[in-house]
């Protein structure tokens, strides 16, 4: 069982690499080096803040775009191209296929994030010529970004298990945008009354809370992150991704592959 999941994950990773997904790293490197050189010349004591803000936001956005655009095709493309027929006619359970695909995409994003993180630290070193203890906080922000990717991957897979790639992209991207304002949505729910309050509260807790996972700004200002938040976010992301994946498995287990 584990071996089959690992083989499917490894094939998904290999497909992403051979489809030149990691080429985004070049665009990222160009963007970050350009920004580092530019803010290095301006030099008004905010170089680090700009580099951290820009670097981590770019890591997040590049990853989200990859997660959505690969994730939405993970199942539907396999059905459309009928590559799934020769996989599921082997002793592979449908849930193993979904979990394998998820692990493969998540692995691709972790590797991608790893190389981007090297880029962020290189740009930081370029502008400040040294590392300080507070720079380690960037790792926490990167960890939260990876958690964000896990949620997005699972959602893209969920939509891909029943919808077309285009609709899946629309759903996933909409959820990402709404989720980025989840805290505001919860605030709005607190102010609403009656049925609207129930409706908005339900929606606010249903959409992924990406705003809680976004600590880029506070880390750029060298504000520490509470250990409790790290635990809370970890459990939240794992729970949300598991729920979305379970939904994907549930739908896919009953789907006719016409």
């Amino acid at each position: 069982m584990k071996a089959r999941i690992a083989h499917i994950a490894s094939n998904t990773f290999r497909e992403a690499v051979r489809d030149r997904v990691l080429y985004n790293l070049i665009a990222f490197a160009v963007l970050l080096s350009g920004a580092a050189i530019l803010v290095g010349q301006i030099s008004i004591e905010i170089e680090k803040l700009v580099v951290i803000n820009l670097g981590l936001t770019a890591v997040s956005l590049f990853g989200i775009v990859i997660a959505i655009f690969i994730g939405i095709g993970l199942v539907s493309k396999e059905i459309e191209k009928r590559t799934l027929y020769t996989v599921l006619s082997r002793p592979v359970r449908r849930w193993e296929f979904i979990v394998g695909k998820f692990c493969g995409l998540a692995g691709t994003l972790v590797v991608n994030t790893f190389f981007m993180a090297i880029g962020v630290f290189a740009a930081l070193f370029y502008v400040s010529h040294k590392f300080v203890r507070a720079d380690a906080l960037v790792l926490v922000a990167l960890y939260f970004i990876v958690l964000e990717f896990l949620i997005i991957c699972s959602l893209a897979l969920l939509f891909s298990s029943f919808s077309s790639p285009l609709l899946s992209a629309v759903f996933a991207f909409s959820l990402f945008v709404i989720g980025s304002f989840a805290e505001d949505l919860r605030g709005f729910a607190g102010m609403a009354h009656g049925f609207t309050r129930w409706l908005v509260t339900g929606a606010a807790y249903l959409v992924p809370n990406f705003s809680a996972l976004n600590v880029i700004s506070s880390i750029a200002h060298e504000q520490p992150v509470a250990a409790q938040l790290i635990w809370h976010n970890t459990l939240y992301a794992l729970f949300y991704a598991t729920m979305a994946l379970s939904g994907a498995v549930l739908i896919f287990e009953h789907r006719n592959l016409k």
């Binding site: 094939n11 290999r14 497909e15 009928r82 027929y85 020769t86 006619s89 002793p91």
Partner: peptide
């Protein structure tokens, strides 16, 4: 039974495979 599939081979009509491999 998924395990019975280990003993089965299947060629679909007009097969298409992972073309990156």
């Amino acid at each position: 039974d998924p395990e019975v599939k280990a003993q089965i081979g299947f060629l679909p009509e007009q097969p298409y495979f992972y073309d990156h491999l």
